[in-house]
Nucleic acid binder design. Structure first.
Lengths: 221, 221
DNA sequence: CTGATAATTTATCACTTGATAATTTTTGCG
DNA sequence: CGCAAAAATTATCAAGTGATAAATTATCAG
């Protein structure tokens, strides 16, 4: 007899079932669901939730853990740094993998909804991008132009903003799709490749100006 | 006696006071405030709200109207099309004005929160960008390279994605500042100008590839 | 088949919440 | 001032909500 056909599931299975269901449910209905709505939608009684989760907030925390954990692939930074490949190819492959991970209704909607509620939740995730991946992307593009770029306090802010502007636009495709409910193209690869081309060409051509502006010091912030 | 010193305000003044206060309140606390929380914070009794707003939802609708209305300046499209100025200068000026308008806590947080709740609310606003401003931006950049670009069904999707990617990154600065609570530079103009340079240079250099890819047909969507 | 155990539901509580009605307070005109 | 109209508050309701305890139902080893 398949587990799903049993009326009374084993505790571990039921807990996982509730959590999986709750992730989809919360992604669609938002963080302000009631425990009764959730239980009704899943087809169980409302007090059953309290057998598996201490309280409503405990369930929410477990949802965040499940959605954010194990979503960032440490191999991505290695890919970006692998100079046996042209930098455009590395960026394209990274962005294809990245968009493939985050263009997920649960990921996008729960990320944004939870950030609105409490930005603390997003900090761990964003720090990873901000401190490691962004400087790496800029340095690798600069290297394509024959310039071995080393981040300094003077260049840091401008470089960060340049890469943020480029990188965030891919996350924003998820916002358009799953929050605004706009249509976005089915196949992203050609678009990613064109936008990588635009970015790499543009940064290389603008590099002298970027370096000059950075030298003029931290007029920023 | 100043109006604000009166205990019993004129109906019109009180209505505006509640609405103004509610906009800040909702921007900070989210859409799921209770009428009691709002009334307490403002220092009036909860039933008073019902003298000025039919119900909770009526108040929310008036908040949306107040936040979104009169925020888009029709002069921006004229600015973008004004060829007496270099295209980089036009883009920079437009983006300085645009970011100046939208980088506002109330605007960003209420926009995102309401979109999460019901994407319908954002459609009127986004359609303006999508259908008019985005094609215009691309055409003007192409003209800088001596190419009088006319949008066709084949080019439409790719061009839209290219400009979305560029344009959304400025909105996203607001997301970073007011939702993630990241620091962003105080002075945006230098960053806007550099990013405009990168975009314009990149698009011009990539133009042959963009046109070729567009001709290969709508493999998109 | 049987009974102990685990899983689930029903019943219920105390508190919150949107909304309305009755009552009280303020304002400003004559 | 004195008083009617407007503005605001207090009191209250019915429905909803998170959480707990008691009762019930399914499961499975022996």
């Amino acid at each position: 007899m398949a587990k799903s056909a049993k009326k009374y599931l084993d505790a571990a299975d039921r807990e996982q079932q509730i959590l999986d269901f709750a992730i989809d449910f919360v992604a669609q209905r938002g963080l302000h669901f009631t425990t009764r709505e959730l239980a009704d939608a899943l087809g169980v009684s409302q007090p059953l939730l309290y057998r598996y989760f201490k309280n409503r907030d405990d369930l929410l925390q477990k949802i965040y853990d499940e959605v954010y954990l194990r979503r960032w692939d440490p191999g991505w930074n290695e890919l970006l740094a692998d100079r046996s490949m042209p930098v455009r190819e590395r960026l394209a492959r990274y962005l294809i993998a990245y968009t493939d991970t985050i263009l997920d209704e649960r990921w996008i909607r729960i990320f944004v909804a939870s950030a609105l509620e409490d930005p603390q939740i997003t900090i761990r995730y964003l720090g990873l991008l901000h401190d490691t991946t962004f400087p790496l992307i800029f340095a690798e593009v600069a290297a394509e132009a024959g310039f071995e770029f080393r981040s300094t306090p003077e260049t840091e802010v401008l470089v960060r903003e340049i890469v943020w502007g480029f990188h965030s636009s891919f996350f924003y495709m998820g916002v358009r799709k799953f929050i605004y409910r706009n249509e976005i193209p089915e196949s992203l690869e050609p678009i990613i490749r064109v936008r990588v081309d635009i970015f790499v060409s543009g940064v290389i051509e603008t590099l002298p100006r970027i370096l000059e502006l950075s030298r003029s010091g931290p007029q920023l912030e």
